[in-house]
């Protein structure tokens, strides 16, 4: 298929400006059985994240007597793509994403408090439209905070890419398919530490700077959405018990 025009009159196919995020909505604790969970709708991405633990690390040899270990599993539902039916479970891509996601959270969780334990992070992509690893990390951070597991910062993630010579933020699937570069990044907003950084394509030195600046600025918006999702449940009385009086 020919490469479509991705930017027309300065606007992207879905009407966004180059530095504009897709709409993001986050709900905390949709999964009752989990220690903490979150659901994110990021553009057309729909992703669930759930936390189990801290719990005894099993099998035992996977544990560490000095600190908790983090386990992460990122998977995509076989019906998540607009195209063909996928295979359920892990492929090489999912294994890599699980690993880099795990490392983001190893950086911020106070692991020393729970020796011998594991903290499991499950990220399930129910519908995908580009940028699922970043959305998954943003969602998992909310799930972790909702579980009460102590973290020294609340990571967010978003990607930037390049179409022609224009740097654009938060690419959707079609942009991703035809882009000239893609760079997902996770950042601890308080300290500005980068905890995930991947890139492929071609970016000049100044384009890297432009992309990172865009990502940092978007972080302010994403952090605010994460914060609202976490604090919303504490803001009013639920009505569901009134009926039982």
């Amino acid at each position: 298929m020919d490469k479509p025009e991705l930017i027309i009159d300065g606007k992207r196919l879905d009407g966004r400006m180059p530095d504009q995020l897709r709409p993001i909505k986050i709900t905390s604790n949709p999964i009752r059985n989990a220690a903490g969970s979150a659901y994110i709708e990021w553009g057309n991405n729909k992703i669930l994240a759930a936390i189990y633990g801290p719990r005894e690390a099993l099998p035992k040899h996977t544990g560490n007597l000095n600190r908790a270990v983090v386990k992460c599993r990122y998977t995509m539902a076989p019906f998540s793509s607009i195209e063909e039916h996928g295979r359920p479970g892990m492929n090489r891509r999912a294994i890599e994403i699980s690993k880099v996601t795990k490392e983001v959270f190893e950086n911020v969780i106070l692991l020393d408090l729970f020796p011998g334990n594991e903290i499991s992070i499950f990220v399930e992509v129910l519908q995908s439209d580009g940028g699922t690893r970043a959305a998954g990390i943003t969602c998992a951070a909310v799930a972790l905070a909702a579980s009460g597991i102590p973290m020294r910062d609340m990571p967010y993630a978003v990607s930037a890419g390049k179409v022609g010579e224009t740097i654009i933020l938060d690419m959707n699937k079609i942009e991703d398919n035809y882009s000239d570069a893609d760079m997902p990044v996770a950042i601890n907003p308080r300290t500005k530490e980068v905890t995930l950084l991947q890139m492929d394509g071609a970016l000049s030195r100044s384009q890297v700077t432009t992309a990172l600046t865009m990502i940092e600025k978007a972080g302010e918006t994403i952090t605010k959405i994460q914060r609202e999702a976490l604090l919303r449940p504490y803001e009013k009385v639920s009505s569901k018990y009134e009926a039982s009086i």
Binding site: F79, S81, E84, H85, Q127, D129
Partner: peptide, 26 residues
């Protein structure tokens, strides 16, 4: 229709049991 990418989808909550069915055709 929770998953518009799928050809069909439905989430059923039966008490606290939550199940999502997705249909794809190839």
């Amino acid at each position: 229709g929770k998953i518009p990418n799928a050809e069909g989808s439905a989430e059923v909550n039966m008490g606290h049991t939550k199940v999502l069915a997705g249909i794809k055709l190839g």
